[in-house]
Simulated scan of single mutants.
Amino acid sequence: MGSPRKLLGLLALLPALGGCAALSLPSSPEAVVDAYFAAVKDLDFERARQYVAEDARVGDLPSPWPQDVPVEPQVVWIEWEAGEALARLGEAQFARPEIALDGSTITGDAATVNYHITQRVPHPSEEDMADLTRALAAADPARYPEVIVDWYIDLLDAAEAVTRSYDGVARLIRVDGKWRIESTSVSLNDVLRNPDGG
């Protein structure tokens, strides 16, 4: 066992090491935007928020509930099968788009980062629709959400899916020496809600 003096020296280093871990956020605007979109694609909104300015409203992050809203209305009840299927659909949709950064401009404590979002948009054929009809006819009604989501996820990866591209820009500010996102346009939510709008 080491001397008490050595042990005290090691203990004194622990807070400093913790401080180093807290400073490990990306240091460039591009790295912040890249890390933000990686977190959003993983549906890890808590992780994504650490890259966003405190009062910013960014389209990919759900708004926090107002403090004065009672707890009961905050809860949305969905049957377990439907809720599970919708969660898988969300994961599948957010995981698939590809995001490529395309340069940045820094002016003082403000920056912009350009990016491109590419995604594949399903276009079901008559045969695809017939497949869905047959699958639903063979399934228990309680499994309809699961059947529909499975069918749609298969279409996301089908060769017939059409590729769409969208140009976007993220605006950032430097706060206490760290870059934080103020806005993104377009957001992944924009693209997924309106795939033919790009």
Rank of each mutant, 00 (worst) to 15 (best):
I117M: 05
A92I: 06
R57N: 13
V33H: 03
L43G: 02
P29W: 02
G18W: 12
V149W: 11
M1N: 14
L155I: 03
V71S: 11
A22I: 10
S27Q: 13
R47D: 12
S187N: 05
G177M: 04
Y36A: 09
I117W: 06
A31C: 11
S125F: 09
G103I: 01
L14D: 09
L7S: 09
L17K: 00
Y144E: 14
N194M: 12
A92Y: 09
L156K: 03
L61V: 06
L86Y: 12
I99H: 12
L7E: 13
V149H: 11
L11R: 07
A138I: 05
D167H: 02
D42I: 03
D68H: 07
L101T: 00
V52W: 03
V186K: 12
V169P: 00
D150F: 11
Y36R: 14
F37T: 08
G168L: 03
D140W: 00
E84F: 11
D190T: 12
L101N: 01
K178M: 01
Y152W: 14
S165G: 11
I99G: 11
V33C: 05
T118N: 02
R57S: 14
I173V: 14
P15I: 06
N189E: 11
A135F: 00
A85Y: 08
S28T: 15
Q119H: 13
A87K: 10
A31D: 12
A158V: 04
T133C: 02
I148T: 14
R164G: 13
T105N: 11
G103Q: 01
W65K: 14
L11S: 07
Y115L: 00
E46P: 01
S104H: 09
E127A: 14
I78L: 15
L8H: 10
E160C: 01
P29V: 03
T163A: 15
D42Q: 15
S165R: 12
V191M: 11
A138W: 00
